[in-house]
Amino acid sequence: KSPLTGYVRFMNERREQLRAKRPEVPFPEITRMLGNEWSKLPPEEKQRYLDEADRDKERYMKELEQY
């Protein structure tokens, strides 16, 4: 499975939280809201997602080498 970027990891995590709080909001609007939230997120909060993405990318590269 391909590695996910930090942005995609953030979107996946927050999308479920936002949909639970506001189920009436259409999917494209949720994506737009989360995109704005990501762009305003402080670098230190973004870093968690970026670090997870880096670890996932390393895992993926190792799997490719073994293939």
Score class of each variant (00 low, 15 high):
8 V>M: 15
46 K>F: 00
64 L>I: 12
15 R>Q: 12
30 I>M: 05
20 A>L: 11
25 V>N: 00
55 R>H: 09
9 R>V: 10
8 V>H: 11
22 R>M: 11
25 V>G: 02
63 E>R: 08
45 E>P: 00
50 L>V: 14
13 E>T: 06
66 Q>D: 14
30 I>D: 05
5 T>P: 11
54 D>T: 12
65 E>I: 01
14 R>D: 01
61 M>F: 07
29 E>H: 15
1 K>F: 15
20 A>N: 11
45 E>D: 05
32 R>Q: 10
55 R>A: 11
55 R>Y: 11
60 Y>S: 15
7 Y>A: 06
29 E>W: 00
51 D>R: 02
15 R>H: 03
53 A>D: 05
52 E>M: 04
63 E>P: 09
2 S>Y: 09
49 Y>V: 04
42 P>M: 02
47 Q>W: 03
20 A>D: 09
14 R>S: 01
13 E>S: 02
47 Q>S: 08
64 L>C: 13
21 K>T: 13
54 D>W: 06
6 G>R: 00
31 T>S: 08
32 R>D: 07
48 R>Q: 09
64 L>R: 14
12 N>T: 10
23 P>I: 05
32 R>N: 06
19 R>S: 13
5 T>V: 06
59 R>F: 09
18 L>T: 02
13 E>I: 10
57 K>Q: 11
58 E>C: 05
48 R>I: 08
11 M>D: 01
25 V>R: 06
28 P>S: 14
62 K>D: 12
53 A>W: 01
18 L>Y: 04
20 A>I: 10
32 R>A: 08
1 K>N: 12
30 I>E: 05
26 P>A: 13
57 K>N: 10
45 E>H: 00
3 P>F: 12
12 N>A: 12
27 F>W: 15
43 P>Y: 03
31 T>Y: 06
3 P>S: 12
30 I>V: 10
53 A>I: 04
45 E>G: 05
64 L>A: 13
21 K>Y: 04
62 K>F: 07
29 E>G: 02
42 P>T: 07
20 A>K: 11
42 P>Y: 00
59 R>K: 12
57 K>E: 13
1 K>Y: 05
28 P>Q: 14
26 P>L: 00
60 Y>K: 11
43 P>V: 09
48 R>N: 04
2 S>Q: 05
5 T>I: 10
23 P>N: 05
10 F>Y: 11
54 D>P: 13
44 E>W: 03
19 R>V: 13
21 K>D: 14
11 M>W: 07
26 P>V: 00
20 A>Q: 11
21 K>C: 10
19 R>P: 03
2 S>I: 08
61 M>G: 14
7 Y>P: 05
57 K>V: 06
32 R>E: 07
20 A>C: 07
14 R>W: 02
48 R>E: 04
24 E>H: 04
54 D>Y: 02
55 R>D: 15
4 L>Q: 12
7 Y>S: 11
7 Y>D: 07
9 R>I: 09
31 T>K: 08
17 Q>F: 08
56 D>Q: 04
16 E>C: 02
55 R>K: 14
32 R>G: 03
2 S>F: 04
22 R>P: 05
7 Y>N: 02
54 D>S: 11
12 N>K: 12
30 I>Y: 03
47 Q>R: 08
22 R>N: 15
3 P>K: 10
42 P>D: 07
53 A>N: 06
23 P>F: 01
2 S>V: 12
44 E>N: 08
65 E>D: 14
61 M>N: 14
38 W>C: 00
47 Q>G: 06
41 L>C: 01
31 T>I: 06
47 Q>I: 00
52 E>K: 00
18 L>C: 02
15 R>Y: 07
8 V>N: 13
30 I>R: 03
10 F>K: 04
14 R>L: 02
3 P>R: 07
12 N>F: 05
65 E>C: 07
49 Y>C: 00
11 M>Q: 04
45 E>A: 09
61 M>P: 13
60 Y>E: 15
42 P>A: 09
4 L>T: 13
43 P>I: 06
19 R>A: 14
10 F>H: 02
8 V>I: 13
30 I>S: 05
63 E>T: 10
50 L>M: 14
66 Q>T: 13
29 E>M: 05
17 Q>L: 08
56 D>C: 03
12 N>E: 11
5 T>D: 15
46 K>G: 01
23 P>W: 00
62 K>N: 14
29 E>L: 02
19 R>T: 11
49 Y>H: 03
22 R>W: 15
46 K>T: 01
1 K>E: 00
17 Q>V: 11
26 P>C: 03
16 E>Y: 00
43 P>E: 08
30 I>P: 01
27 F>C: 15
27 F>R: 13
17 Q>I: 11
57 K>T: 06
66 Q>C: 09
61 M>W: 08
24 E>L: 09
62 K>W: 04
63 E>W: 03
31 T>V: 06
48 R>T: 07
1 K>T: 04
18 L>P: 00
9 R>Y: 11
42 P>K: 02
44 E>L: 07
16 E>W: 00
14 R>M: 09
32 R>L: 02
15 R>L: 13
16 E>P: 08
14 R>I: 02
16 E>R: 06
60 Y>R: 15
16 E>Q: 10
27 F>N: 15
33 M>K: 12
48 R>L: 05
10 F>E: 06
1 K>Q: 00
47 Q>N: 06
57 K>P: 06
7 Y>Q: 13
31 T>N: 13
7 Y>R: 11
34 L>S: 03
24 E>Q: 06
55 R>C: 10
45 E>S: 04
14 R>E: 04
54 D>K: 10
23 P>E: 11
11 M>G: 02
29 E>I: 00
28 P>C: 13
65 E>L: 06
60 Y>I: 09
41 L>D: 00
23 P>M: 02
53 A>S: 09
26 P>H: 06
18 L>A: 03
23 P>Q: 07
58 E>K: 09
4 L>M: 08
20 A>T: 03
47 Q>L: 11
30 I>W: 05
30 I>G: 06
26 P>D: 12
52 E>V: 05
8 V>W: 07
8 V>A: 14
22 R>G: 12
57 K>S: 11
21 K>F: 03
16 E>S: 07
6 G>S: 04
